[in-house]
Nucleic acid binder design. Sequence first.
DNA 1: ATAGGTTTTGTCAAGCTTTTGTACAT
DNA 2: ATGTACAAAAGCTTGACAAAACCTAT
Lengths: 299, 299, 299
Amino acid sequence: MGDRREPTMRIGALAARLGVSVDTLRAWERRYAVIAPARTAAGFRLYSLADEDTIRAMLGHMEGGLAPAQAAGLARGAAPAPLANEGRLDLLRAELLAAFLSFDAVEAHRIVDEAVATFALPTVINDVWLWCLREIGDRWASGTATVAEEHFASAVIRERMLGMGRDWDAGHGPRALLACPVGERHDVGLIGLGLALGRLGWRITFLGPDTPTESIRAAAANLQPSVVVISALTPAPLLRDAAALQELAGAFPVVLAGPGAAHVVAEELGARVVAGDPVAAARDVAAHLPGSEVVARPA
Amino acid sequence: MGDRREPTMRIGALAARLGVSVDTLRAWERRYAVIAPARTAAGFRLYSLADEDTIRAMLGHMEGGLAPAQAAGLARGAAPAPLANEGRLDLLRAELLAAFLSFDAVEAHRIVDEAVATFALPTVINDVWLWCLREIGDRWASGTATVAEEHFASAVIRERMLGMGRDWDAGHGPRALLACPVGERHDVGLIGLGLALGRLGWRITFLGPDTPTESIRAAAANLQPSVVVISALTPAPLLRDAAALQELAGAFPVVLAGPGAAHVVAEELGARVVAGDPVAAARDVAAHLPGSEVVARPA
Amino acid sequence: MGDRREPTMRIGALAARLGVSVDTLRAWERRYAVIAPARTAAGFRLYSLADEDTIRAMLGHMEGGLAPAQAAGLARGAAPAPLANEGRLDLLRAELLAAFLSFDAVEAHRIVDEAVATFALPTVINDVWLWCLREIGDRWASGTATVAEEHFASAVIRERMLGMGRDWDAGHGPRALLACPVGERHDVGLIGLGLALGRLGWRITFLGPDTPTESIRAAAANLQPSVVVISALTPAPLLRDAAALQELAGAFPVVLAGPGAAHVVAEELGARVVAGDPVAAARDVAAHLPGSEVVARPA
DNA sequence: ATAGGTTTTGTCAAGCTTTTGTACAT
DNA sequence: ATGTACAAAAGCTTGACAAAACCTAT
């Protein structure tokens, strides 16, 4: 109901609210076209709250020393103020998507900040970040976007995720070793899994994309993790080095994640599969802490 | 109980209650069709309490500076607007309540995410968050819950509200300074008011619970807010420092909110009262933007 | 959108911002060609924020003793030097302090965002947030600041900390129950402890400030935490309800934190003391996990 | 730094229309 | 109660003007 764009105020009311004379308001409209108020049948101007916002922005710039003409120019350009308000999540991710599609990193970071402040981490991972990446993927498939947008978006999201995972290997929880196999360069989902697992008390060691099996094995030998998580978008990278992975799975509990984690593959390698989105997969991993004495506490 | 739609008052009675002349009431009916009173057999108008509500809404808008025609238009269209996802709301808040009663913060956050994604902010504030707190309060009164649940729930809700208010002092709107007086530690309602006011385009500076009047005064001197909102559950904290508050109200427009904002107190302090739930109170504040005193029209 | 190169200021505005006369600005442009402002259709100069940066650089050099001609030459080809991580901390917290002292929440949040993105959590807690609060406290003691700034700063910081602790009770780690006793309203340090403990894999349930011992007991009975952490600035609130706390300490491992956690008090209550800043205290709590089979893993 | 010319911008006026509270007649 | 009338208040448009801010050139 409370639509910010509904025209309600006559010029006198607006002038009083803003502390600006009616003559001035009319002059600004005439000279800078900063607003275009609705009219009653008889021709009286009717202003909306959005119009008020615009003029306030202009006044703000003038208070900063700008001349009216320039202040009006800025106020006219920067008039977002949609705030449909219904369904914050939809709004936020639509904005984020728009920021990605226009390569606006500053705006993207701002929106991510807001999302992180507004929602809990699992929601942000699944319903904001990965949603955006999926959406951009769809647009690429339909020709509405190029690979560049996808690259840009995943770079920004990756940076934010890694920033949140800065100290994910602190503490005393069980340790997980995360990596993508050679040939797999998409690690955003895996980082999300790591974040979710980290919040469940685990210590995470992240080796990154495109990691040779031998590197994973060496790190595992060094760290003795409770589980090794390997993620891939397709089965191919997992099969390419099947022998080494099989050996790894013999020495440590190996879990496969991501769309490429087919059961057939897992069976062949002697590994376990965790399905679903990164947050669900992390819960699955945590629930099946291998070799674990699950300290069941009565509720 | 009495139906608010039952026609009972004759025009003189209604005019007296509203402080509006009978001629004016008839003119408004004729010109704006804002109400359609019932008639006696002899043709006398009979108004209901609902009619009175409508006219009061219209008067409220006029006090905020709107011309009668527009005020009537808004009052006419201001139907309660029942919710589409009525059942959804009941389910969600029942789940949230259960999460609070079992101290399950993870689940509580998940549900809040869903609520925020589904409903508009005013609904979330009034019909989810504050509803839960009231419900827990009732259970405490009846011995079904302890203070611990209340503490826990309000900590979680408070955090979520503040998270959504992260950018509430951005923009160019009028500025509001919010605080609870010394002795008042419940600021959840005030935060809700701040959120709602923020969505109306205001800039919010929030000082928090238990704030000495001197601090409020210092911050006000620094920020020159358009209004200072002070909230309390009981009148006591407002009266304790009456002299200083009175002085504050002399220098800045002060508004009292919350159950403790009695008219007697306000009159003594030279402040204004906004009644009702936080969202309604915010609307009231916004409608009476001070410093734009549209000097009272003759009644 | 906020492009630093957009021409907006007329010469008067720029002169006022820089504290330089308009004639001087025109002379510098003519003589040294430091800047080449855009022009309106009518020929008025329009400067951008980038232009302002350039002139400021020139002014900086002049303050260093250079003649205008040389200063202009340097400023023309200047690029802002990036900061090392070390000086970055000093700069960041100085900026944050300034934002708090001018009640600028938007700016404060921006800086906190940057701090969180740059430094590890313990650094942010101890060396940014608590540092700022201590600094403001000092200024209050010396009369350079009022309580209002302290209130404002701790409201913002508290909100950010709670936001980072949104999912701190997820997972399967040992559980800690955190609360301040009745009469103690400062919980910022305790929240910091909770955050640090959460990063170490613990699950945190936070009851907030001013919690009756009975509430703590009820929540503990419900949750069966591995440890109950109680924090106070002075010993008084701990002593007020000594009997009930003693009983609590009989049923659960109780740890006292904060400046009020004196050894004498702890001994009387049968509790343990953790000393030092919140991060150190959290490490201490984690290291002495009560009733625990410390599963020592070789690093 | 001054002089002389141009542009910008808030305010006002004149002449006319619409809105709105109140008054009067039926 | 209804219908009409009316005057004050508030709007609209066009046009104009003077102070302030800018420009170039000397």
